[in-house]
Design a protein around this nucleic acid. Structure first.
Length: 494
RNA sequence: GGCGCCGUACCCAAGUGGCUAAGGGAAGGGACUGCAAAUCCCUCAUUCAACAGUUCGAAUCUGUUCGGCGCCUCCA
């Protein structure tokens, strides 16, 4: 099993290549986290799910994984800050907005959205990172990094801040293709900051004693630049040279390009051996973003009745390297399959009786095909198809499942869940972390109605039985008769 | 102006040189059911945006055209 190779597209070399670990069997992985000035949307989570799947696959092939996912809780400039530093901070801006009225200050606001992010993370059943560092807790290291870069001749101080000199790093642009030559050809109306040596130079530190979040540094009061936090935190928790770095496609430039320049200037070592970028999630064929205001959040979808695992399923239903068109219909499609897994799980757990294991080899084979698909550049559609084939096989076995077959089924479902996270949640509070807007109907009332209907059915009063069923349906409750009794489920309003 | 992605059935979505173009949803038929729901079985692209070319052979490679999207500025 140890020889299994994990192949992933690498943005740097523009090809699918084997993911390798510098330390044998130990993957060091950094995934850029969210800026916590608002609720993360499902597009953000698509990118984190890519990271989650990578972690799961790495573990499945026997690797140890150290996974770092940061929180960007320092606001950075929203507008073009090149000109005069008058750009408004994202956190400050959020504080002034309508939602911001609930918070006393930016720190509270950041904390609130950090907690919300972590709740959504759990609801979507992402494995916890080994470290979740916050930018604000690493300001000292960021200042030190800026000082070191000045000493090394890669950065310089101006009246407005400390800037990294792109000219000092000839390889700038090797990740995104935005080389200095190409950037010069850009025809954008970038406002020139006279204090900077070159327009592409970026801030390591901004001097600003009016900023709501500010720290004291050798350069005076101010706050760190956007890119330096990841350089510093990746190095602190994973070392000078990491195996894999991931993010959304928009992180390629400038963020990751700048990280490479900073990190490699500081350490003299290749920053990351592999780069993975998740394509944007689209909604009805259009880009979704916080600024565009057309975004779905995990909590909104759950409030509308979506099963969190179905949201997860919907988000991994396409290959991470291609745009995925997310729709309500997609969640409904996923819901049907999530229910199949639940049914298969129930059947596996209710196995009884002696008899041969009729499914073991077949399920083992399907598990291997699922893993194989994921090892092939994270081909989730094929992996989901293979896994589902196994679930359907188990369901077909039904109540007659033997204990031996049931054990194989359980092993299969556990295996599939460890790979894809779609059978059951890792978290006890998976479903309660964010409570679905269950209809305001008392469970005991429903049970009473079911009993009443059973009596009506027993006395062949089908008109009355159907009336009760319809009554509950209008309350959003769906009844399912089975040989062992009547069950009820909450109907999704999606 | 620079860099890049995509166009496969009603919808979502694999496949990127060679058996009959995965899978899910929807739809239609059947089994089961008092009737439903759920579940199971069956059907559902001679065809991969269009055109031209390379090849014994292409959805897969090359070129052109049309259409959609993204980055270059905060964004996953």
């Amino acid at each position: 099993m140890g020889e299994k190779t994990f192949r992933l597209y690498d943005t740097m070399t523009k090809q699918v290549k084997e993911l390798q670990t510098k330390e044998p069997g130990h993957l060091k992985f950094y995934a850029c986290g969210p800026t916590v000035y608002s609720y993360a949307h499902i597009g953000n989570f698509r990118s984190f799910l890519t990271a989650d799947l990578i972690v799961r696959v790495a573990k499945a092939i026997g690797w140890k994984v150290t996974f770092v996912n940061n929180i960007t809780d320092v606001g950075h400039m929203t507008d073009d800050d090149l000109a005069d530093g008058q750009g408004e901070d994202k956190l400050e801006k959020a504080l002034k907005s309508k939602e911001g009225e609930h918070f006393h200050n930016v720190w509270e606001l950041a904390e609130h959205y950090t907690n919300a992010f972590e709740n959504d993370w759990r609801a979507l059943n992402l494995l916890p990172p080994d470290v979740r560092p916050k930018a604000t807790q690493h300001v000292r290291q960021q200042i030190l990094a800026a000082e070191t870069l000045i000493e090394k001749g890669n950065a310089y101080e101006t009246p407005t801040g400390v800037y990294y000199s792109v000219e000092s790093f000839p390889e700038y642009g090797k990740l995104s293709g935005n080389t200095q030559d190409n950037l010069r050809q850009a025809v954008r109306d970038v406002v020139q900051d006279d204090n900077k040596r070159a327009p592409a130079d970026f801030a390591l530190w901004k001097k600003d004693d009016k900023h709501l979040m500010q720290w004291y540094s050798p350069f005076g009061w101010g706050f760190p630049g956007w890119h330096i936090e990841c350089t510093v935190m990746a190095r602190e928790y994973l070392g000078d040279s990491i195996d894999l770095h991931s993010g959304g496609e928009d992180n390629m430039f400038p963020h990751h390009e700048c990280e490479i320049a900073q990190s490699e200037s500081l350490t003299g070592q290749p920053f990351s051996g592999h780069w993975v970028h998740t394509r944007f999630l689209q909604v009805n064929g259009e880009k979704m973003s916080k600024s565009a205001g057309n975004f779905y959040t995990v909590r909104d979808l759950i409030a509308k009745g979506a099963d969190p695992l179905a949201v997860r399923y919907g988000l991994i239903a396409g290959i991470y390297g291609k745009p995925l068109n997310f729709t309500d219909q997609g969640v409904r499609d996923a819901q049907a399959n999530i229910e199949r897994y639940r049914k298969a799980d129930q059947i596996a757990k209710s196995s009884s009786g002696d008899g041969p294991d009729t499914l073991g080899p077949m399920l083992d084979d399907l598990y291997n095909q699922t893993l194989e698909a994921l090892c092939n550049d994270l081909n989730t559609p094929v992996a989901l198809a293979k896994a589902l084939e196994g679930a359907r096989t188990i369901i077909k076995e039904g109540d007659s499942i033997t204990r031996a077959t049931g054990d194989s089924a359980k092993r299969f479902l556990d295996g599939v869940n460890s790979l894809l996270g779609i059978v059951y949640s890792e978290y006890d509070d998976g479903f309660t972390a964010i409570q679905a807007s269950a209809p305001n109907v008392d469970a005991s009332l429903i049970e009473a109605k079911i009993v009443e209907r059973a009596e009506a059915k027993a006395s062949k009063d089908f008109a009355r039985a159907d009336a009760i069923r319809k009554e509950l349906e209008e309350l959003g409750i769906e009844l399912r008769d089975s040989p062992t009794g009547t069950e009820w489920v909450v109907k999704s309003s999606l």
